[in-house]
Structures are given as structure tokens and as C-alpha cells.
């Protein structure tokens, strides 16, 4: 396959960037999108040019490091992570636009790499359970209803890649935050911090400068892990409940 790539190039956070055009040849349909970018970078290095910086780690679709907006879609046309997107999703002669996540809470570091530490701070605000350390407790000591376990697991699938923020026209982090809150709040282990968790995590999310939710549904469509849109409704319910209960 022969492709034309239009890639966002930006030297550093303080320099304005622009879309740059590159031709790549000899691309196999079996390559992943990142391998195709590796091919481009090898060529750029041989030419003595600066390779395109992009985030990646496991390349197995589970770490949440890769983060590219391909032809206007976070993680590209398939419902998966960029690393699991293969070149067979494109045709010979295509022009592909590659851009970084766009949100003021995710500033561009270089080229396609953005700083997603805002997500880390949302987790720090309440995305944990406080438990005494020591030997693993007896598994049957804390029964969890099957429906609750399924609900928790569905939300625990979130890998924190930030595609929801990138896809949202408001740069809102509600799908991410709701996944993390719902995952812990439904479980008995998360119950002691149930109210402070949702209140603090939402407060942190707002403090980071993410936008509000207008229920466009773009986030849930982009999510590579299929976190559903009603997660946000479940988080809102938890937040309203916590507001009623927090007076103690």
C-alpha cells in the first residue's frame, strides 16, 4: 500500500504546530497503525529528520498509552485502540490525517504526545480503596452479587487512554471519571469512601479544566473498551446521592 499521511508536528509545548505531509510506501495490510508509523519514522531517521513522536507501550490494546486521532476519530475507524488498528482498515492511495488528543486539560508535549497526568490526579482524588495491607483476605468473606460484579467489571475495563476526552466536543472527562467511580462505588470494598470518592473525583475533574457533559454520546462511541454512555448517568446519580448524604 502507498499512503499519504498528514501528521501534526509540534516541536514542544510552546511552539505552534502544523500538519505536515509524508508519503509512505510498501505498507502491508497486516501492519498495525503504529508499525506503519514506525516505518515512517525509520525513513525519517535515515533522512536525518526528526521522527514523529507518539505514545505507545504494550501494543496489545490493554495499557492505554496509544492516543491518536485518525481521520477525526479517536483511535481511528475501528472500535479498538490505535495499536490494534490494522492497515487493512485503509485502502491503497488513502490520505490519512493523524492528530493528537485535543483538550486544554491534555496539553501537547511534542507532535502526537499529550500530557495526560490530569487523569492521574483524578485517580489520586479518590480512585482507590483504603484497605489494611497484609495477607490476602478470605475470598468468601465479602460476598458480591453477580450483577454488581459484572457492573464493576464493565467499568474496570477502562484503560484511561483519554479517547473519551478527545472525542468529546466539550473536552469532557465524564466517561473516564464515571467508569472509575462506578467500578469502585458498586463494590463493598469501595463502600466506606463511596460519597467522598464521587465528590472529590468530580471536583478534581472540574479543577483540571475538562468541560461538562452535553450527552452527545461521542465518548462512548470512541471508547475502545466499550464503556457505555449510561455510566455518566450512574455517576450523576452517585454524585446527587453523595450530596444528600454528605452532611455528617
Amino acid at each position: 500500500m502507498k499512503l499519504t499521511l498528514r501528521v501534526w508536528r509540534q516541536k514542544n509545548p510552546d511552539t505552534p504546530g502544523e500538519m505536515a505531509s509524508y508519503d509512505v510506501d510498501n505498507i502491508s495490510a497486516d501492519m498495525s497503525f503504529l508499525e506503519m508509523l514506525d516505518t515512517l519514522n525509520e525513513e525519517l531517521i535515515l533522512r536525518g529528520d526528526d521522527p514523529v513522536a507518539f505514545d505507545h507501550d504494550c501494543r496489545e490494546g490493554i495499557c492505554g498509552a496509544c492516543s491518536l486521532v485518525i481521520n477525526g476519530d479517536a483511535h481511528g475507524p475501528e472500535r479498538t485502540t490505535t495499536c490494534q488498528l490494522h492497515m487493512r482498515s485503509f485502502s491503497d492511495g488513502d490520505t490519512i490525517d493523524v492528530e493528537p488528543w485535543r483538550a486544554s486539560a491534555f496539553p501537547v508535549v511534542k507532535d502526537l504526545v499529550v500530557d495526560r497526568s490530569a487523569f492521574d490526579r483524578i485517580i489520586q482524588a479518590g480512585g482507590y480503596v483504603s484497605v489494611p495491607t497484609g495477607a490476602a483476605p478470605e475470598a468468601h468473606a465479602t460476598p458480591v452479587p453477580k450483577a454488581d460484579a459484572d457492573f464493576a467489571f464493565e467499568h474496570a475495563e477502562c484503560i484511561g487512554c483519554g479517547a473519551c476526552v478527545a472525542a468529546c466536543p466539550n473536552g469532557s472527562a465524564m466517561l473516564f471519571t464515571s467508569a472509575k467511580i462506578n467500578h469502585l462505588n458498586v463494590l463493598p470494598q469501595g463502600a466506606p469512601e463511596r460519597e467522598t470518592r464521587v465528590l472529590d473525583m468530580v471536583a478534581q475533574m472540574d479543577d483540571e479544566g475538562f468541560g461538562g457533559c452535553t450527552l452527545t454520546g461521542e465518548c462512548a462511541t470512541a471508547c475502545p473498551k466499550g464503556i457505555p454512555l449510561p455510566s455518566i448517568a450512574a455517576m450523576n446519580k452517585e454524585w446527587l446521592r453523595a450530596n444528600r448524604k454528605a452532611k455528617r
Binding site: 476519530d73 490525517d97 466536543p169 473536552g171 479544566g209 468541560g211
Partner: peptide
């Protein structure tokens, strides 16, 4: 707040969400 949270538009344009939205 929403407009501030998303100051840079994507170069690759496409329609987002439904007309009512």
C-alpha cells in the same frame, strides 16, 4: 467552560452528534 476545554479544533472535520444535540 466547554469551549475553553476544547480550544483547538481537529484539522480533519466531521459531523459530531445528532442535529438536535
Amino acid at each position: 467552560r466547554d469551549i475553553r476545554a476544547r480550544p483547538v479544533k481537529y484539522a480533519h472535520k466531521r459531523k459530531r452528534a445528532s442535529y438536535a444535540t
